[in-house]
């Protein structure tokens, strides 16, 4: 829509972001170009950005227009940019894309292959686990990574018995493990309820919860 509008007005459209020339910021020749080992994002191979400064978050949002992953602080303090890398939750704002060569990234857009809602996404709707919706994709991706950590038996700061091999799915365990995802609207109760309901239903977690 805008492109047409600009063309009609005879405005010079700038280069598309992926083609931005990096004059002056050109990295030395020693740097691997990454063409052989691209990043996989939601199943698609994507070249490593030429500008080393590009974060995984900005690669997603500005270059691939996958804006479901949110920028809340760009400093690792809010969790809105959480994505899954090889199944593990990380903060894409603190991740230089170049460092993730060869890795497989899943963002909120890629949670389910067919566009169906993930059970956790449905639970967020049922439990009103959001208000403005800005922290929501990060909460959801984080919770999926968190559930995997729970299944694996990773302890948390509120785990009483560090030696335990299975982790209980208690409210405080979920709250502590999700504390890296800020929500300012105050949807915490709904978020925790949605996560608890979703993962209490999965067999592995139900086992762990026993």
């Amino acid at each position: 829509m805008l492109v047409g509008g600009l063309a009609r007005l005879g405005l010079r459209a700038g280069p598309s972001p992926r083609d931005v020339p990096q004059n002056g910021a050109t990295p030395p020749a020693a740097v691997p170009k990454g063409v052989d080992m691209p990043i996989t994002i939601n199943g698609q191979a994507v070249p490593i950005p030429v500008d080393v400064r590009t974060s995984l978050l900005d690669l997603l949002r500005e270059q691939l227009h996958l804006s479901g992953t949110k920028k809340g602080c760009n400093q690792g303090a809010c969790g809105a940019c959480t994505v899954l890398v090889d199944g593990e939750r990380i903060l894409s704002c603190l991740a230089l894309a170049a460092q993730y060569e060869g890795r497989s990234v899943v963002s909120i857009e890629g949670l389910t292959p067919d566009g169906e809602l993930h059970p956790l996404q449905r639970a967020f709707i049922n439990h009103d686990g959001y208000q403005c919706g800005y922290c929501t994709p990060g909460q959801i991706c984080s919770a999926i990574g968190m559930a995997d950590e729970l299944r694996r038996g990773v302890p948390s700061a509120v785990t009483a018995d560090l030696a335990a091999t299975t982790m209980a799915l208690t409210g405080d365990e979920l709250r502590e493990r999700m504390s890296g995802n800020l929500c300012r609207c105050g949807a915490h109760n709904g978020i925790v309820a949605a996560i608890a309901e979703t993962f209490a239903r999965t067999p592995a977690m139900a086992e762990a919860a026993e």
């Binding site: 593990e88 603190l94 984080s142 700061a157 890296g180 995802n181």
Partner: peptide, 10 residues
């Protein structure tokens, strides 16, 4: 486990 968040620890 008392430091940072799950994402940062990963």
């Amino acid at each position: 486990l008392a430091g940072a968040s799950g994402q940062i620890r990963n």
